[in-house]
């Protein structure tokens, strides 16, 4: 049986189910307990699990990340909620230098089964410091796995897998998607880390995206369909490890690739995909790989500048037509 539930509830159910199953899991972060979550993801969890397992922290991202990483090396499985990934930059030392290196520096003796999760990317007119997308930053780091989800079904199945994973996992959500509703089964299910999903089948062009830019990718595919262009849309779901086989198989069918992402362009997820596709499917490409990213600037406040900064449907449609040589 399936129900239609909001994104935040799907995330909450993943944590609740896993915490009922395994006492070593706890949730820690700013406003997660008494306030019921800055974005109400953890609503009701303090009531169910108590203060021992749902823990409010001071505003000290580096400090509570460090405590969670230390705790994960000593028999617990923390879930750390960052109010946004913008604030998690303060904790990067613990994620990059400690969590990601615990297994290797200790020669495999100690591990770090931990999930760092929270909203990522822009969420309206929030200005430069609250609007950044970090997938490519974390995807650069050996020792981490990076998940970035676009819908409630994937959010629940992948968060459960992330919590059960024995390595540190970075899990990216979005403020503007927490209210999005989607079909989620009543029954328990898991989605494997490292597998992309074909969100829409098509033959003429492949569009790859993830997180809330999937709305742009699917919106563009819808517009293109009106003009008789059949776009295949792939939702990466996991950024590291990247499921490049699914992309390459699609490109072998469509011979054209457009990537839509909210990263900045330099050394972004699209950069890595483009390298992989030219290497694995060079002879299948009928046009250069193209991409649409956030602007190579800081985000400004004015609404027109926000719109100009982010990828959108019209520009994606135009890019697809360019790789199909329908427009110049």
């Amino acid at each position: 049986m399936s129900r239609i539930i909001p994104f935040r509830q799907a995330l909450r159910e993943a944590m609740q189910e896993e915490m009922r199953r395994d006492d070593s899991i706890f949730l820690m972060g700013e406003e997660v307990a008494q306030y019921n979550g800055a974005y109400k993801v953890s609503q009701g969890m303090l009531d169910e699990f108590g203060e021992r397992r749902v823990i409010d922290t001071p505003i000290a991202e580096l400090g509570f990340a460090a405590i969670a990483v230390g705790a994960s090396s000593n028999g617990t499985r923390p879930i750390v909620e960052f109010m946004t990934w913008n604030f998690a930059v303060l904790a990067l030392d613990q994620i990059l230098n400690h969590a990601a290196k615990m297994v290797s520096m200790s020669g495999g003796q100690f591990s770090c089964p931990i999930v760092f999760r929270g909203p990522n990317g822009s969420a309206g007119q929030l200005g430069a410091q609250h609007s950044q997308a970090f997938e490519s930053w974390y995807a650069n780091i050996p020792g981490l796995k990076v998940i970035s989800v676009s819908n409630p079904y994937d959010a629940k199945g992948l968060l459960k897998s992330a919590i059960r994973d024995n390595d540190p996992v970075v899990f990216m959500e979005s403020e503007v998607m927490y209210g999005d509703e989607g079909e989620v089964p009543e029954e328990e299910y898991l989605i494997p880390i490292g597998k992309a999903r074909i969100a829409r089948e098509g033959n003429d062009v492949t569009i790859v995206s993830f997180n809330k830019m999937m709305k742009v990718a699917l919106g563009a595919a819808e517009e293109l369909a009106k003009e008789g262009i059949s776009a295949e849309v792939i939702d990466l779901r996991t950024i590291r490890p990247l499921d490049w086989e699914t992309i390459v198989n699609s490109v072998k069918k469509t011979n054209r690739l457009v990537i839509v992402e909210e990263q900045w362009p330099f050394a972004s997820v699209s950069s890595e995909i483009s390298y992989r596709v030219q290497k694995e499917a060079f002879d299948y490409l009928d046009a250069p790989i193209r991409r649409i990213t956030s602007a190579d600037t800081n985000m400004h406040y004015a609404p027109n500048l926000v719109a100009a900064y982010l990828p959108d449907v019209p520009r994606t449609v135009k890019l697809v037509k360019e790789v199909m040589y329908l427009v110049k």
Partner: peptide, 10 residues
């Protein structure tokens, strides 16, 4: 310093 507190936390 933070890791040590975390080990104790566990």
């Amino acid at each position: 310093i933070g890791l040590g507190a975390g080990i104790a936390f566990a």
